[in-house]
Structure formats: structure tokens, C-alpha cells
């Protein structure tokens, strides 16, 4: 593996036909980043998802300035849900530490806990919806309501997707053996990165709705 990576500009200004360059290039490993493809794949998906949420936020900002914008109350339950999400992120940090130390028993227990918390969060969000509908904040009321339902729904769907990956993680960790021990660790790492990402997205969305 190369010790020092050329910057992207350096790479793009190479003359691949130049005999001196040919010699350097012949020892190239082929990879661009010293990263596992899984991690890179997760980053890719997080970028796509971030772009999507950013675009929503841009339209939110654009739509907010019109005078039919009526602010929506933030039920207390939302704070609890946020807290649940924070807790599960913290637990994921613990899981990662445990898996690094190969304490898979601990990791297993915490993984179950995280799944449980995710379900609580989803149920909690659903209760918030019901609460809002009962109070008469329908989706077609003010655009603020529409955005609230939209954001929570999309975030919830992301979490559901995360749960699918969580199931895959569980399967790997439960059937852990010598060969896939690395894979299990890797999967745990990806899963926890994704959970932190979802927490970050939620905090941005929640903060946005809170302060506007």
C-alpha cells in the first residue's frame, strides 16, 4: 500500500503516458481510499440521504416566508422521543466498545436494547401523530403541519431501514464464529454509524421545527 496518497488534484494532473509516471503507476494498488467498501457504501447512502433532507430543508425555508405559515406546537412527547434516540446512540457507543474488546455477550444484550428503543421511538412518534390529529393539526392545515408529518415520516422510514440492517447485524453477531468475527465487528460499526447519523438528522429536523 502506498505510504503517502497524492491529493486529488495531483492525481488528476498526472500524465499517464509519461514514462516516469508509468513506473509510479505500475505499483498502484488500484484502490482510491484506504477504506472498506461497506463503510464507503454507507457514506454514499448517508450523503444521498443528507442531500434529500437538505433539499427538504431548503424548500422549508422557502415556504416558511409565506403568510399562511402557522407555527405548530411541539408536544412534550417529542422531547421524550428525542431522549430515547440519544440513549440508543449512547448505547451504540457502548456496543462498539464491547465489540472492540470482543465482549460479545455485552454487545448482544445492548443490541437487543437498541432495537427495543427503536421500536419505542417509532411508537412514540406514532403517538405524537395521533395526538396532533386529535388536536386538529391535520396534514393539509398549515404547511408547517405538512412538513412536520413529512419529516417525521421520512425519518421514521430511515429508522425502519436501519432496523432491517439491525436484523442483519443481530444475525451475524448471534452466529459469530472465527471466520466472520471481523464481519460482525464491521457490521456493528456500520450499524452504529447509521444510528448516530439518524440521531443527527433528527436533531437538525427537530431543531428546525422548534425554532421556526
Amino acid at each position: 500500500m502506498e505510504t503517502k496518497k497524492d491529493s486529488i488534484i495531483d492525481q488528476l494532473t498526472q500524465k499517464p503516458w509519461d514514462p516516469a509516471q508509468v513506473k509510479i503507476d505500475n505499483s498502484h494498488e488500484g484502490r482510491t481510499f484506504n477504506l472498506h467498501v461497506g463503510k464507503l457504501g454507507l457514506r454514499y447512502l448517508m450523503i444521498v440521504s443528507t442531500i434529500m433532507f437538505c433539499l427538504f430543508i431548503v424548500t422549508y425555508g422557502d415556504r416558511m416566508v409565506y403568510d399562511d405559515w402557522v407555527k405548530m406546537p411541539e408536544p412534550f412527547l417529542l422531547w421524550i422521543n428525542t431522549f430515547v434516540l440519544v440513549i440508543s446512540s449512547i448505547i451504540f457507543v457502548r456496543i462498539q466498545i464491547a465489540s472492540k474488546k470482543n465482549q460479545f455477550k455485552k454487545a448482544k444484550r445492548d443490541l437487543i436494547l437498541v432495537g427495543f428503543l427503536a421500536l419505542i421511538f417509532l411508537i412514540g412518534q406514532f403517538l405524537v401523530w395521533q395526538n396532533m390529529v386529535d388536536k386538529g393539526y391535520y396534514v393539509y392545515g398549515s404547511p408547517a403541519n405538512a412538513y412536520f408529518y413529512l419529516f417525521t415520516a421520512l425519518h421514521g422510514l430511515h429508522l425502519l431501514g436501519g432496523l432491517v440492517y439491525w436484523v442483519m447485524t443481530i444475525r451475524k453477531v448471534w452466529n459469530i464464529n472465527n471466520i466472520i468475527i471481523r464481519k460482525a465487528k464491521h457490521t456493528i460499526e456500520l450499524c452504529s454509524i447509521y444510528w448516530h447519523f439518524l440521531l443527527a438528522v433528527w436533531i437538525v429536523l427537530f431543531g428546525l421545527m422548534l425554532f421556526t
Partner: peptide, 12 residues
């Protein structure tokens, strides 16, 4: 990005 074979730089 990641699955190029040996010697395959971006500019090749």
C-alpha cells in the same frame, strides 16, 4: 473507486 485492479490509477 475501490475495486480497480493493480496498476489501474484514476488517470489510466
Amino acid at each position: 473507486l475501490q475495486a480497480r485492479t493493480r496498476g489501474m490509477t484514476l488517470m489510466r
